[in-house]
């Protein structure tokens, strides 16, 4: 592989990886707090992309404005999902909330099929993202710089919220011990709602950027990236934001590089993440950066 090719694959890997990372953060935050795999997260991702499409086509918003509006609307939708489908089940066995999450996921996905139809749609992409920059042998799409940079900025914002603000303190408290947090007067439900809002907004941002990279809108588009991002979160150590970022970027790099080095594996690309997951769980069940959750006897 030439250096130029390598750099391109590297950039592609980081781009894909930061998209996974953005989704993975939402999974890991919700899991860290509620011990719930939010299956609906992949549909949140899909809706983010669709709302931009609608904003542009129906409301004639400029692209950048449509993006911001979509992120906000989808964040609110995440809060709504929690309010309707998860909050009533806080005291129920954990598995009930999980089934509820699967239910919401299928509901949103099929609602999208009803409303948007299952036919794939083309996506608007600004030209300046498409025109390659040439440096020596290396051709770089601005897109592969734009996505990681924007993702990085969003993650920095998140880190600020989690470590420097009051709701962030609440999140960290709840993820340590939800009962004690109630007792200490943390507004648990509000903090959880904020968590869902932020996680969903990040997933929406990822969904939007995903369609810049793979310009096709489809109601089922969230499923595979969603699963993979969850796997990234598990691999990185569920509950840990740093772990989600490392897991996401790592997974993106592995997928792109594996196919680049072994082109025969292209058909198996979607299975790669699952194989990685099963491997990691067997070797280190808590993931790379995860804390051990012990069952007391």
């Amino acid at each position: 592989m030439s250096l130029a090719m390598f750099v391109q694959h590297l950039l592609n890997g980081v781009t894909l990886g930061s998209l996974y990372a953005l989704i993975a953060i939402g999974y890991t935050m919700v899991y860290g707090i509620l011990r719930l795999i939010n299956f609906a997260h992949s549909e949140i991702f899909m809706l983010g992309a669709y709302f931009v499409f609608w904003g542009i086509v129906l409301l004639h918003l400029p692209w950048a404005v449509a993006m911001v509006v979509a992120v906000i609307v989808v964040g609110a939708l995440g809060v709504l999902v929690d309010r309707i489908a998860y909050r009533p089940l806080r005291d129920a066995p954990r598995i009930s909330a999980l089934i509820s999450a699967i239910g919401v996921s299928f509901f949103l996905q099929n609602l999208a099929i009803v409303v948007f139809s299952a036919i794939p749609r083309e996506v608007y992409r600004p030209d300046w993202l498409e025109n390659a920059i040439v440096v020596g042998d290396i051709r770089v799409l601005p897109l592969t710089l734009f996505v990681p940079v924007l993702s990085f900025l969003l993650m920095m914002g998140l880190v600020f919220i989690v470590y420097k603000t009051k709701p962030g303190l609440g999140m960290r408290a709840i993820s340590k011990d939800i009962e004690t947090s109630y007792a200490m007067g943390v507004p648990v439900n509000r903090v959880i709602a904020i968590t869902f809002g932020i996680g969903s907004a990040l997933a929406a941002a990822s969904g939007i950027m995903w369609t810049l990279r793979y310009p096709q809108l489809q109601p089922v588009m969230g499923m595979i990236p969603g699963f993979k991002a969850f796997i990234a979160a598990v691999v990185g150590g569920i509950g840990s934001i740093q772990g989600a970022v490392i897991g996401g970027i790592g997974l993106g790099l592995i997928e792109i590089m594996a196919v680049a080095v072994f082109p025969d594996l292209a058909g198996y690309r979607d299975a790669l993440a699952f194989i990685l997951l099963i491997g990691i769980l067997l070797v280190k069940p808590t993931g790379l950066l995860g804390e051990k959750l012990e069952d007391k006897v």
Binding site: P88, L89, S96, G103, F107, N110, I113, V114, A118, P219
Partner: peptide
């Protein structure tokens, strides 16, 4: 016909069961 409607109804039904008659 409305494709997807069937699964919308069923996922809603599942949600109702898990929320109201677990």
């Amino acid at each position: 016909g409305i494709p997807g409607m069937r699964m919308v109804v069923f996922s809603l039904a599942l949600l109702f069961i898990i929320l109201f008659r677990r």
